[in-house]
Amino acid sequence: MAAIQKTKQPKKKKVKKEDEVTFAPGVVSEEKKKRLKKLDEFIEGVLQEAGEEFLDEFKQIEGE
């Protein structure tokens, strides 16, 4: 139980832009499906390109 007083802020209505793609569950629009599919394809490509040696090659020397 928190001892510090919490002041609840009034809820803000989120203004939705026309080209905004929501992550919210529920109805999945065709546009959202299309964009998520593109994202998935992109990620597969990135992982394939990276290959198994990616993490070993990433080793860094620390800076100041």
Partner: peptide
């Protein structure tokens, strides 16, 4: 190759 920028491009 950057995933953040792909998320940005997809309007996410």
């Amino acid at each position: 190759e950057g995933i953040f920028y792909q998320l940005q491009d997809q309007g996410l």
